[in-house]
Nucleic acid binder design. Sequence first.
DNA 1: CATCGACACTAAAACTATTTTTCCAATGAT
DNA 2: ATCATTGGAAAAATAGTTTTAGTGTCGATG
Lengths: 305, 305
Amino acid sequence: MRFTLKQLRYFDAVLRTGSVARAAVELNISQSSITAAIDVIEQVTGAELLRRMPAKGIVPTDKGAEAGKRVRSFLEQARIFESDLLSVTGDPTGILRLACYAPTAPYVLPPILRRVSASYPSIRIELKEGNMQEISELLSAGVVDMALTYRRLTPESQPFVPMFRAKPMALIPDTSPLVKQDEVTLADLADEPMILLDLPGTHAYFCGIFEDAGLRPNVVHTTKSSSVLRGLVSAQFGYALMNICGPNDRSGDEGYIAKPISDLSDAPQFGVTYTVAAQRSSMVKSVLKTCRDIATKGGFDHLIE
Amino acid sequence: MRFTLKQLRYFDAVLRTGSVARAAVELNISQSSITAAIDVIEQVTGAELLRRMPAKGIVPTDKGAEAGKRVRSFLEQARIFESDLLSVTGDPTGILRLACYAPTAPYVLPPILRRVSASYPSIRIELKEGNMQEISELLSAGVVDMALTYRRLTPESQPFVPMFRAKPMALIPDTSPLVKQDEVTLADLADEPMILLDLPGTHAYFCGIFEDAGLRPNVVHTTKSSSVLRGLVSAQFGYALMNICGPNDRSGDEGYIAKPISDLSDAPQFGVTYTVAAQRSSMVKSVLKTCRDIATKGGFDHLIE
DNA sequence: CATCGACACTAAAACTATTTTTCCAATGAT
DNA sequence: ATCATTGGAAAAATAGTTTTAGTGTCGATG
């Protein structure tokens, strides 16, 4: 037992903030406590971990950066352990850090959050949203414990629990002739002007759907925001493809309406991933169970028609 | 940060020893320090973890036992983290707890220990020996980080790095007519009196070799000790089968000599396993590398002829 | 080039926590 | 009944942490 959790936490804070002073502010503690902790760690490891830049802060040496990674991952384990130990009383307790693929968040999150807080009132969920790249970074950095995302966007190595298949829908503006049909085909769409959601991964995915059918979409605009996308469709600039649609998209009140695409071969799986560090945590297990429950009970049926 | 590593360690010691008093002796501290730590843990978790039995020690409640498991696994992680952090200086440092399948230990261990201490002087190895059952218990309980054993004896789920194939040999006593042959066949052996090593797994294995050839060995004695086994062969009670033989077995000076068996279909793989908890430890990685090195450089050739 | 501000380090004092010491009550074995 | 063993409690001692206050270094600024 050569280090205490406190020392490690101080060390981590210094590395994160890049300065003893800033770390002290963050931790509500005096600078000297922190230097003391660092001294111990450097002395025990017998290596220079941080290089002091007078008046400029601190920069980690190579060894320091390496040590930082290990410390961070251990503190991560400690955090999970702690909430896990507190959960022996019965219900899982703690703060679960959950990321969600942003475009799907407004549809997927509410039912999950509702059920989790109903079943496990002692679990607090801290949300983060982001695109696929950001999410996998958050996961691998251990900034979040779990993430809701498409399987297509998660590395093979990662555990993935599928919840539902999200069949792409076409949002057809009212002025398009297609609006009279109950279903549309890719060929119908190919000539119409298209608004494309241009996030990492989605671009290739939506274009790929057409390519697989030997067609090319007629992209007139791209945007990184799904609400801007809906706005453009509303304003009759063209149609758009969306994997997940809400009641609004189906109502027809917004100047467009969601239609199923009849000739689609497969629909991407949406589900939940989690870090290896978190996999044994009872909190994660509980949320996982909830997600599975919702999925099997058809809790996402309104999204997939 | 609701617990300190110290408190967790005390708690674990109490659970392991079943008594505050014994834990105090083990940890070289006073009883009261331990009760204090337990009080904190019970207070923070808000559950009764240990039931005090005056004059009899302490028994964990259900929750306490559950908490104990989690604490133990976390302390395990902490231990690995610590040696890992100390290894940032360059060479891996720490205490590696290594188990070895007992009958093979005298032959397998020396070259490994020699190379490890040459390449990584800061790694201290703590050895445990045992039969296959004991070894898998040690591994799953996290009492050891790595184990040297036969693949046949390790669960599929566990990572296994093969080192060499150990072809069974026959130890033929000097008075046997077979001693004149360079090689023996299973049929040759079937009629001779056999001494059988009777450890969990070996019994079935050695008998299986004969069964596969449609023969039945003529077992006259069984023993659980490989040195007793050799003694019995020396004393001309019969021959024995052994997967790993040393120079002594080949010298012919002991009243018997090791002979290859010509009609054997396959030879069991011997190698090294490790716990999931330990897999990221740089110490484990280094030892693993050494084992692989020795194997590829033929460091075990003298054992397999 | 003097000055100021941001920064980190040190030493001593103040504080907090842990540990030991000491004594106690409960229990079970003899 | 007696004794050894157990855990619990309180005060004293010890160890560890934190703050305070002062020092020195560097870079920016006038």
